[in-house]
Structure formats: structure tokens, C-alpha cells
Write a protein that binds this DNA or RNA. Structure first.
Ligand SMILES: [Zn+2]
Ligand SMILES: [Zn+2]
Ligand SMILES: [Zn+2]
Ligand SMILES: [Zn+2]
Lengths: 159, 159
DNA sequence: TGAAAATTTGCAACATTATAACATTCGCCC
DNA sequence: GGGCGAATGTTATAATGTTGCAAATTTTCA
């Protein structure tokens, strides 16, 4: 869960990460939340990968920084980032990925390639609507939605 | 993850389980798959609960039978049941539940109550369609779909 | 300022979920 | 009833996630 590969589509990823971090700082400031160095570093590490990153991958990356962290450090940072909508947890992978719509209220769909392991977050309002309707038909009140599609991305389709 | 509660709607659950087991036997027979005693017992244990059951819950239930099983026994049985579509894995809970559409090709939506922990499987073709379209729009080829909605069921709504 | 309070972090142990590797037994076919 | 592949038993270990408490840091407010 830690080898390198091209992101979904080529782009200046360093800039992409910086923009995400700036957005995160703004979100935290607006909500009086403290984006401490550890939290920010964890967010940066997650953003640097287009693949969902496991908690222990983050831990290993912190170790390379010389930060001798234990699991709770990472999980606490992840809890914070989840709480403020800065990252998502991909349940089917036990892994985390940066949210591309931080600060906006949204229901995401994740397209997860089983070959290259990249994951793409979609807003997909039509899916969100269909889910809401299905739940309403059962008088069920949705609080949190997990929609993860595993398959093949266009780049990996011809294996 | 093992206390008892009413199922979503009251019904004769023993009959419900027996019907599921009969269906499972039919599916296995049709595919020349061996529904061995351990596998069938695991399926029965899972069906007896309307709540998704963890692998170690199953293990504990087997122990009460006097079956001194180790984790691989349970995971192998679960793998078999998953492979033949007799149970589903709920990724957000690390737990398993009997499939109410065994033998039929389907994309399910799970409504999972955070209060009573019951889970309801829906066919929800409109959701499946919306997901397919969203994936197609990204030239993504879906292979497996995880849709899990956590929230409050009608019985638990007024806490 | 400067102590009290709240939040965050460090740290050790532990809990839960899942798999690897290899030996043994079972069911089936001949 | 011997051979063979599938299924199970057994032991150990990997991977993921949590609890509890102490130390350090930041915030609050007198
Ligand atoms: Zn998002
Ligand atoms: Zn791919
Ligand atoms: Zn099903
Ligand atoms: Zn409920």
C-alpha cells in the first residue's frame, strides 16, 4: 500500500497539495479548529498520495520525518481530519484520502482502481439523491453514507 | 456486537432462517459447491441475527456449540459464503450479514441503524443505476460496489 | 503577567480483525 | 481400499485500531 504511481491524470501535484493545505487552514480557521503541525503533516502526507493511505503507512512516513510517533498519534490526527471533513476514510480499504471538497457539504462516491489503486472522489449528486430516496422509502434517517466502487480505471482497463 | 433485539419488523425469524438455508442449499447444489456442516452452521448463525455479525462473534457462537474452531475456520467459511453470494460483508462494520437475494445478481444498499444495529438490505435499482452512470461518465469499469448508509431506523428515530 | 483549565501529545499496553504456513482429515472416484 | 483434491485443524503472526494515564502545550481569564 505504498508504491508510487501516476495520479489519475497528470498534473502538478505539489501545487495540488499546497492548495489543499491552504484550503484546510481556511476551514480550520473558520471553525476555530487547531490544525497543529502533526495534523497538518498527516494531511500533507495523505494528500501527497493519490492512493488511499493506511494509518500505518502514515505512521511509517512520519517515522521517515524523524517523528517517532505511536499509533494513537496518527489515529488522533486522522480523527481530527475526518471530523472537519478534510479527509475521508475508505472503509473497504481501511485507508484514508484527502477530501477534494473540504468545507462543502457533500455525499461522495469513490471510484477505486484495483490495479493502480488510485481513488477518485466524485460529488455525484444523482447518486446522493437516489440514496436519499431509497432511505426515505424505508423511513430511514441517513447520517453517514459510504459509497465505494472498486473496479478498473480507464488507464488500467487493458491489462 | 452480540446483544439481542427485535428485527426490523416482527416476523417468524426461525422460518426466515430455514428458508434462507434452503435457498443456500439450492444455490450450492446448482453450482456444485459443497455447503459443508461448518459452512452451513456459520450461515445459520449469521442469519439468526438481523445485526451484522463479526467473524469473532461467529467464532464465539461456534464455541458455544462445542465446536472448538480457530479464526481461519470462520474466515474460510465466510470466504466461501461470500464467493457464492450467500452473505455480504459490511465494510464499515467489519461484519457479515445474510444476503436476502442469494442467487440473484444484484447491487445492494444497506441501511444500518446506529442505535439498534439492525441492517436492512435493499435492492435499490435506482441507486445502482446512478452509480453505474457516474462510473461510466469517468470511463470507470465497476466490479464491486459497497453502499452502506448509517443512520437511524424508524424504530429508533425518537431517542 | 501568571496560575487554573482545557486541549493536545507521548507512551505503553492491549484489543480486534485477518492471514500465512503446514499438517491432517475427509469425500469422492476409481 | 488406495489415490487425489478439497476441506479443516493448528499454531503462529500480521495488520488495524483502542484505552488509559501522564506530560507538555495552549488558552483563558483574573
Ligand atoms: Zn469529500
Ligand atoms: Zn488504475
Ligand atoms: Zn444481497
Ligand atoms: Zn434502530
Amino acid at each position: 500500500m505504498s508504491s508510487k504511481a501516476l495520479p489519475y491524470r497528470p498534473h502538478n501535484h505539489a501545487a495540488c497539495v499546497q492548495q489543499a493545505l491552504a484550503g484546510a487552514r481556511a476551514v480550520c480557521k473558520a471553525q476555530n479548529a487547531r490544525l497543529t503541525p502533526t495534523r497538518e503533516r498527516v494531511l500533507e502526507l495523505i494528500w501527497q498520495s493519490h492512493k488511499p493511505l493506511g494509518a500505518y503507512d502514515v505512521l511509517a512516513a512520519l517515522a521517515e520525518d524523524g517523528h517517532n510517533a505511536a499509533p494513537p498519534t496518527v489515529y488522533r490526527a486522522l480523527d481530527f481530519l475526518l471530523q472537519y471533513g478534510l479527509v475521508h476514510r475508505i472503509a473497504s480499504l481501511n485507508a484514508f484520502i484527502g477530501c477534494t471538497h473540504a468545507g462543502e457539504h457533500h455525499t461522495s462516491v469513490f471510484l477505486i482502481c484495483r490495479s493502480c489503486r488510485n481513488a477518485l472522489e466524485l460529488a455525484a449528486p444523482s447518486v446522493a439523491d437516489a440514496v436519499r430516496e431509497a432511505a426515505a422509502a424505508q423511513a430511514f434517517t441517513p447520517e453517514e453514507t459510504t459509497i465505494e466502487i472498486a473496479g478498473q480505471c480507464p488507464n488500467c482497463r487493458h491489462d
